[in-house]
Design a protein around this nucleic acid. Structure first.
Lengths: 251, 251
DNA sequence: AAGGTATAGTTGTATAGACAAGTAAGACTA
DNA sequence: TAGTCTTACTTGTCTATACAACTATACCTT
């Protein structure tokens, strides 16, 4: 159940952003299902003791990213996904894979996906284009999870000065600088990628608060020979793939 | 001159939308020039007798569409034309076009190249791939020229400490930091692009000292609708185009 | 002269309240 | 029964205000 402890009013992170991420998480985890109405603005406002305008701004983020659609007089509803996209939800995918008994979630996170593309195409008859898309989604989700986990771990397990420096410069480049001495390499990589794309985002005029990931991945075979690669920019619900013009969206 | 009669408070069209369109028109007509600051929120609020929040919402529309960029503490500025507009200053290209007699240089400089890709393909039988390549070449050369010119201008016309700071931190991010206060916006833009890609380059494992440019350009029609785009990475003599694997070389 | 401080001005976030506009469902009327 | 009206509820727009965060500049102190 929603709890107002999940919104930190004293944080440097704007409340509307916290709330947007909270709702986004509920949608991604399936706690708010496609087609369902999310709580009304008044309800959310009361539940978290924040003003309705702030709630509206949070919801506006979700509307922009296409996760929900608001209908005046009726309510705000979680966008219905198409059949194809269900595959691309990380949880569902891991679930499917685990059921099949071929690859477990841990395997995916440990980046030991070998010839996964072939596997997907042969065993699950997934098209090549969809494999590419699937990969980018997996990498992004994994990166997000890992970033969240390792940052939390670092902040909770290390000394105080680090936390203070974080507060002094909460931007991603700042985090990279502050953490570069003791962060695990994988997290540093993720932070660097995020920092790089945040810089790129500012150049390209993208809204600062929308998370942007630039993902380049290479697929190796067991002998560590390159068998393929793909590159994608991921911003909110939109993604851009090498070889495909323009921005694409979930639905 | 702006006039509050231009905002109809009784209209069914929201005021924020009316104001956004009004500002958009001023930018498109050149009454607000690239790099210039638009009036402050307080000024607009007072001039049209509407609340600042409504003004903010209008400006938010322009920020989202990339026409302006807001900088906390400084102001809101009309976005500089993207690098593709610099294309129109490239001498070689203008020369060729002038010879053909179809597009004059002045036309190019006025950024009135309409559907240039179509034109090139229809009139000159240039393949789509070559049009993309041509565009990227033009952009890169123009960017290099502009960077060289504006840096030189800055260094020769400004005081000594700048030169010293340059020597202290000769990297591109250092240059950006040192010059950010007085460099023309366009040059800053170029430097930023270079800096961003240097960061990206370090992630991707490219040799640090070779100059790298990441160019993304968009082609607009007269109504400012996007009719195409291309993206390329340019390093020394080599270039990489979206949709084409690997690195290519000049000739 | 160098460096810190105060100040004014700008955008960013958040609040509380008001009313408009659209939807749905029940109550009422012909 | 069929249509209209009322009412409650939802999102949309707008105001007035407050303070935070950031920038640039003038001023002051050492």
């Amino acid at each position: 159940m929603m709890n107002n402890r999940l919104i930190d009013k004293t944080s440097v992170i704007p409340m509307y952003y916290q709330l947007a991420k909270l709702l986004e998480g509920q949608i991604r985890r399936g706690e708010l299902k496609p087609g369902e109405a999310i709580p009304t603005e008044t309800e959310i406002s009361a539940r978290f003791a924040i003003s309705r305008m702030t709630v509206r701004r949070a919801i506006a983020e979700l509307v922009t990213s296409g996760m929900v659609n608001a209908q005046q007089g009726k309510g705000t509803f979680v966008t219905m996904p198409k059949l194809d996209n269900i595959v691309f939800e990380l949880n569902d995918f891991n679930h499917n894979i685990q059921q099949s008994g071929i690859l477990a979630k841990t395997t995916l996170l440990e980046a030991k996906i070998v010839r996964l593309n072939e596997l997907l195409q042969e065993k699950f008859a997934v098209s090549n284009a969809n494999v590419k898309f699937l990969f980018s989604r997996m990498v992004v989700s994994a990166a997000e999870e890992r970033l969240a986990y390792e940052t939390k771990y670092t902040l909770y397990s290390k000394s105080k000065p680090i936390l203070e420096s974080d507060l002094q410069d909460p931007t991603l480049p700042g985090l990279v600088a502050a953490h570069s001495n003791f962060l695990p390499v994988s997290a540093k990589k993720v932070l660097q990628v995020a920092a790089a794309t945040e810089l790129e985002a500012s150049i390209l005029g993208i809204v600062p608060n929308s998370p942007v990931f630039l993902i380049e991945q290479t697929i190796y075979d067991p002998e560590h020979r390159t068998v393929g690669w793909s590159k994608s920019i991921y911003r909110g619900d939109r993604y851009k793939l090498t070889g495909y013009d323009g921005w694409y969206k979930k639905d």
